[in-house]
Design a protein around this nucleic acid. Structure first.
Lengths: 237, 237
DNA sequence: AACGGTCCTTGCGCTGCGACAAAGAGCGCG
DNA sequence: CGCGCTCTTTGTCGCAGCGCAAGGACCGTT
């Protein structure tokens, strides 16, 4: 059910493509196809040969990796406008993770054969990709630093704040994470367990910091959360 | 005491430059200067404006980040041939970390103003940079996965094995990590404490897996370490 | 409206590992 | 050649947070 025609107006505003001339954009979009992904469905799976690369137009994806022992980790959240599945940029022939739609989503997809020519023909695209990967690298280093030095509650606070920034929607009474996210997900993002996240959320809820429901999260007091993330805690009891 | 003339023969074999034509290489090397860094000296420090970018020719560097709370984390080890200090590729104007020479080292350095022109003029260089950053991203994800799911001993085993791969020198009786590395360093690479690393090394030493001295490390039984890293442990007592 | 599936909560006991402490060992410097 | 510094070892102790377990809430389905 791919849509053969792509609406340039949707693509144009994305930072990745914004510096392309109009004619270039046509060239880039040649061979691209959009595709709907239902919630819970995978765009691609870890270990599969990397046949396509993608841009997320709408919705939200979670990228998982599974350890040899079968443990899951969420490597990142893909937000609208993000490039993903770019195995070629990492010099891989397979996908290093599994991308699953956290909400109904729409992706733009190119066959991987288009990668090299596109990158070669459009230097500004290559630049953009470099920056994308660079940004992810910095995120990753931030996470490493947090996991190495911070205790669980602060890591969870950081993770939630990151979600707020990337996917927060202002709402009377606070900021809502606008896609379904479970405690399990947050546990996998912070290297802890579902149980611990649940406990932390309960404590935050009593403290009036957040309002947490099934797959839902409303941050009532972002500033308070920032304090927690910076270690202003240990006032319990 | 920079050396104004750079020996092309030293640069040519580096993967990063190998696909450049000879004339291109001249262009790339224009404006490059080599510099010696004594052990313990910093090439650049976290937060400084990023004035140069570098390639390590000889020696070994540790890249640290300091948390707001003052904790140190080792982000990566720079091996000969590696590009580093490429803040521009991450769209930063300052260095995100501090690079310190773990052993006497020689770096090749360019003023950062050369970055954009070089990347623009030499597409294969841009590609190479993308792959470099991509490889680092994958490393980072691996570390995140390990820190999230594995217990300390296995993480330490993985870290040591990575060192062996990158900086191992075969030697009668085992593989030596050929630059000075302390337990503190390894603790900072794995998100644990000096004390725990010391204990683990002691245990490994009794088990005949490694031989560890002051800033020295000889892996006697790499395969045994692999077993540890894969979780074949819990035989103690 | 009953049912199964998913997601969430909470209590309890155990333990990996960090905090603290104190002393030993190797190295470089004056 | 001895002094001080950094790096390392080893022990003891306490606790954050994980594993386990059981139960409850909410959701979509037929």
């Amino acid at each position: 059910m791919p849509t053969p025609t792509i609406d340039k107006a949707v693509i144009r505003p994305l930072p990745l493509f914004s510096s392309l001339a109009d004619a270039e954009l046509d060239d880039v979009l040649a061979g691209a196809v959009s595709r709907r992904i239902a919630q819970g469905e995978a765009v691609f799976e870890q270990g599969q040969p990397a046949s396509h690369f993608y841009v997320l137009l709408h919705g939200r994806l979670k990228v998982h990796q599974v350890t040899p022992a079968g443990q899951q980790v969420i490597v990142r959240i893909v937000n609208p406008g993000d490039l993903f599945g770019i195995a070629k940029a990492l010099r891989r022939t397979d996908y290093p993770g599994t991308a699953i739609a956290a909400a109904d989503s729409v992706v733009l997809t190119w066959p991987m054969e288009r990668w090299d020519p596109l990158i070669a023909a459009h230097p500004s695209l290559a630049l953009g990709v470099m920056h994308t990967v660079g940004a992810r690298l910095q995120d990753a280093h931030t996470r490493i630093r947090e996991m190495a030095t911070e205790e669980v509650e602060r890591r969870v606070a950081h993770a939630v704040l990151r979600l707020v920034q990337q996917s927060g929607k202002k709402e009377p009474g606070g900021i809502r994470i606008d896609f379904p996210i479970s405690r399990q997900d947050i546990a996998e993002m912070t290297g802890t367990t579902l149980h611990t996240v649940s406990r932390i959320f309960s404590a935050w809820e009593s403290a009036g910091l957040v309002e947490a429901g099934r797959q839902k999260l409303l941050v009532r007091d972002p500033h308070g959360l920032v304090l927690v993330s910076e270690g202003m805690t240990r006032e319990r009891r």
